[in-house]
Simulated scan of single mutants.
Amino acid sequence: MPPEDPHEITVHLDALLAERGLTLTELAERVGVTPVNLSILKNGRAKAIRFTTLSALCRELDCQPGDLLAHEKNQ
């Protein structure tokens, strides 16, 4: 798959934030990323995520990577 093709990864950050009663800004501060970068991830526009960021998100949201990300063909 060339880099310009759309990916098939869905991010469930909105649902996890709502379940935990957190705002995007609060989570960004806890994780150590900018709210803009976290918003890019939340909206499915990120091209990559570092394992350190994924680990921090899972730590703060008390979840597993599979709770945050899903592979869905033909979005």
Rank of each mutant, 00 (worst) to 15 (best):
E26A: 14
K47Y: 02
R45F: 11
T52P: 02
C58E: 00
N37A: 15
K47L: 12
L54N: 08
T52F: 06
A28R: 09
P35W: 00
L41K: 03
T34H: 06
L27V: 03
C58Y: 00
I49E: 04
R30Y: 05
T34K: 05
L41M: 06
K42S: 13
G32A: 06
V36D: 08
R59W: 02
L38Q: 02
C58F: 00
V33G: 10
N43A: 07
P35E: 10
A46K: 12
R30M: 11
I49Y: 00
K47T: 08
R30I: 01
A56H: 09
A46Y: 04
V36S: 09
S39T: 09
T34P: 03
A28C: 10
I40C: 05
V36P: 02
A46S: 14
C58I: 00
E29T: 14
E26F: 05
L38K: 01
L57K: 04
I49C: 05
N37Q: 11
N37H: 13
T52N: 13
E26K: 12
L54W: 04
V36L: 07
S39G: 14
R50P: 01
L54M: 09
S39V: 00
G32Y: 10
L54F: 03
A46P: 07
A28L: 07
S55H: 12
A48P: 01
K42N: 03
V31Y: 11
E29V: 14
S55K: 04
C58H: 00
P35Y: 01
F51Y: 11
R59G: 00
I40A: 07
R45H: 15
S39Q: 11
R45T: 10
V33M: 11
E26I: 08
L57I: 02
C58L: 00
L27F: 05
I40V: 15
T53E: 12
V31P: 05
R45S: 14
L57V: 00
P35D: 12
A56G: 05
L57P: 01
E26M: 11
K47S: 12
L57W: 00
E29P: 09
V31E: 03
L38C: 06
T52R: 07
R45L: 14
A46E: 09
S55G: 14
E26L: 10
N37G: 04
E29C: 07
S39K: 09
G32S: 09
A28D: 08
E26W: 04
V36T: 10
N37W: 09
R30T: 05
L38P: 04
